[in-house]
Amino acid sequence: MNAVLRRVLVWAALMVLLAITLGAAFLPLGAARPWIAYGIATAKAALILWFFMELRREGGLVRLAAIAGFVWLTILFTLTAADYLTRFWTG
């Protein structure tokens, strides 16, 4: 496939995701809403990383370096949230 065309298609996919996430924000989905919003954001980030940042062309080590930051962020979020979510549980 033509390299430029592929990028344009990825861009189109990003725009579709943007439309979906915007639409979903107005639906009465309750507690699921943030999950959907962040799920779509993750999907968009993955598209950018994989195609625009060309991780698809790279070896395992480079991919590892690229996602290391995100993995570490997950550690930060998970354990911080572990505090906030359970702080007011009474035992």
């Binding site: 354990l79 572990a82 505090d83 906030y84 979510l85 359970t86 702080r87 007011f88 549980w89 035992g91």
Partner: peptide, 15 residues
Amino acid sequence: VWGHHMFVSGQSVYA
């Protein structure tokens, strides 16, 4: 392991 600096800080006991 950073939370071990915060055992008496008012952090959730489960954390």
